[in-house]
Simulated assay, not measured.
Amino acid sequence: MLAEQRQKFILDQLVASGALAISELVGELGVSRETIRRDLNVLAARGLLILTHGGALSPERAEPDAQTRAAVNVEGKRAIGMRAAELVPDGASVILDYGTTTHAVAQALHGHRNLVVYTNDIAIALLLGRRNGNRVVMLGGELQDNEDATQGWDTIEQLSRYRADFAFVGTGGITADGQMSDFSRAAAELRSRMLLAAGVACVVADHTKFGRNAGVLVKHFDKAAWLISDRAPEPGLCAALAARGPALRIA
């Protein structure tokens, strides 16, 4: 198969699935990993796909920047934040993930007192720190390119030292079969660890995330006690979520 034929096959598969792994392409095309990597690099240079660790994403699967996301469904996210904050008493310890929906949770917690907050989001740290007797622990790590937040193995290692009462974790999408997904392995791994690091873990996702496969599955979604959203998903996804474990809490 010529390089042009392989590359057309790769693009056709991306249109169908949105995400591909190099190992899958090696098996389907019968060529070496190095050949597939060269093809992916050529397509990425033309802006036709986004390289990930071990594969590629369709450009439509890339996460928009924080400013763009902040303008989407503002009222829905505010309602999610208020619903989430109802769970948290004064004096609790809370893990807050980065993102626009978790920022809405932080805003709803603004009047709470004596919280211990663990976060990798700089804006959340500034919002809740130095007020009402709160303590804020900023999780260190590598600064993300398009977020005022950290992630990576250093962030995960620091998180492993703490155990919180609650965690509020964002997501890139909830797939049609009820799985939690994200746009990168780094984000997916950090969020999976956050779900394990709290007595009550909650995933916060507005309805625009329903039915979206962001490309990388997040482990331990079944450990979440709640999925908090602004609207109930369609019946098929409701049934899939019920099988996965988290209970729906609708704002």
Results as ranks from 00 to 15, higher is better:
V116Y: 07
R130I: 07
A108Y: 05
T175K: 07
E189F: 01
N114Y: 13
R83L: 13
L43M: 01
A66S: 11
A66Y: 12
G55L: 07
D145Q: 13
R37G: 00
R131H: 09
K77P: 04
A84N: 03
T171A: 12
D90Q: 09
R78K: 13
T101N: 10
T101L: 06
A16Q: 12
R161N: 13
A56D: 06
P89Q: 06
M1Y: 02
G236M: 05
P235T: 00
D12N: 13
A251H: 06
V31T: 03
T35E: 02
G152D: 10
F210A: 02
M1P: 01
G173Y: 06
A79W: 04
A243V: 02
L57R: 14
D65R: 07
D230T: 01
E75G: 03
V26W: 02
I22N: 08
S58Q: 05
E75W: 05
R135V: 11
V26P: 00
L20Q: 03
V169T: 11
R191T: 02
L48H: 10
T155C: 14
V137N: 14
L109D: 01
R185H: 15
M180F: 15
L127T: 11
R212D: 03
G76W: 03
L2D: 14
R78Q: 12
R161E: 12
A45L: 06
E142P: 09
A71P: 06
A123C: 10
D222E: 15
K209A: 05
L217R: 15
V15M: 15
R69F: 02
R38P: 00
S23W: 06
A66P: 06
A205I: 00
F9W: 03
A104T: 08
T52L: 10
G99M: 00
R191I: 04
M194V: 08
E86H: 07
A214V: 09
V15Y: 13
L195G: 04
R61A: 13
A205Y: 04
I250W: 05
G172E: 08
R212P: 05
A205N: 05
N73Q: 08
A19N: 06
R38F: 02
A106D: 12
N146G: 12
N134Y: 11
E24Y: 10
G178C: 07
Q158A: 12
V216L: 09
T155A: 12
Q151N: 15
D182W: 04
E28Q: 15
Q158T: 11
L29R: 01
I50C: 14
R38D: 02
L115Y: 01
S32C: 02
S192Y: 05
